[in-house]
Amino acid sequence: MFEEGQLYSPVTQHDDGTVEVHLSDNHPGRNDPAYVARRSEIAGAAMAWTRGEPIPHIDYTDAEHEIWRTVSHELTPKHEKYAHSEYLAAKHALRLPTEHVPQLHEVSELLEPITGWTYVAAPGLVPLRDFYGDLGARTFNSTQYLRHGSQPLYTPEPDIIHEVIGHGNQLASPRFARITEAAGQASLRLETEEAMKFVADVFWFSMEFGIMREHGEVKAYGAGILSSYGEMDEYAHMEHRDLDLVDMGTLNYDITAYQPVLFCADSLDQLEGVVGEFFETVDDDLAARLRAEAVERGLVSAPDA
């Protein structure tokens, strides 16, 4: 089971204005009424927020701060061992707090002077085009809740630890930040949903679950790996393929399981030259041609097959 699978719990708002988060049956907090109520409270704050207003301030509890502290301390030696030097340099430049959960405005205040990125609040899943459109404006949508305290190193969905420790540190690298921004700007050129999905899948296998060779070792730079205590021990044992946009944009994957296939860049220059240039130039026609090539190569079935 991929413990940090990218599954957001659905959020609904009832006619009386109350907000409810629906946790899956296997969620550690599913049978904890206090946790469910807390999640609903935090989601409600994001849903009531209007852009242009101050980002909702969450009064985190001592227990929530302890979860952040525990994960921060446990991930640090893992990062030193497994993370690519570009990510480590960005992490050291950003200097996220390790003893308390940062407010999103605090993350923005640390990040914006470095790469111009800011954070905004989201109750959970953000529609794909909205999420990528914001990336194109150097804006990252982040949840504000934390995982259940019974298993601080486990989460079945992205929480603020994934969004900030994983992506925030990554976005403090000017080079990673430019690739992410280019992916967002690409979405503004795309009209078809097929092309949008192709871009999102390339993003998945790069900025979320990307790995890269460095000094004879394979290091991780993807936010999904580097925010996951368990994934960092597993990625080296998976199948590693060379960067291949056709394969990356069409490969089926299970977001609830460890990724059995990862794509490895030879260098940061290569990542920029292949993935970054793709995001900078892709349009509907290019995505369609790459999809057609996948059919020719037998990677996917023809649409009418």
Rank of each mutant, 00 (worst) to 15 (best):
G52D: 12
I42R: 00
I42P: 02
G136V: 03
H148L: 05
G124K: 00
P113Y: 01
P156E: 02
V120L: 12
L125Y: 06
P54I: 10
A83F: 11
Y35P: 05
F131D: 09
R178V: 01
I58D: 07
Y87N: 04
T98V: 15
T118Y: 09
A45I: 01
R138S: 12
L135F: 12
P174F: 02
T118Q: 10
A48V: 01
G116A: 03
Y132G: 03
R129N: 07
S85W: 01
G133E: 01
D159M: 08
P127Q: 03
G116I: 03
F176Y: 14
R95C: 12
Q103C: 08
I165W: 12
P97R: 14
R39I: 00
K91P: 07
D59G: 10
H148V: 05
A46K: 01
V36A: 07
V164I: 15
W68G: 07
G136R: 02
V126G: 02
N169E: 14
I58N: 04
L146K: 06
D134R: 15
P123C: 02
T76V: 12
F176W: 03
R51M: 10
R69L: 09
T180G: 05
T155N: 08
G44A: 01
G136S: 04
D130M: 09
T143Q: 04
E41L: 05
A46Y: 03
W117A: 07
A93S: 09
G149P: 03
D130C: 07
E99V: 08
S85F: 01
W117M: 07
A83L: 08
R51N: 08
G166Q: 14
E80I: 14
T70S: 10
F131L: 14
V36G: 00
H65M: 09
W68E: 04
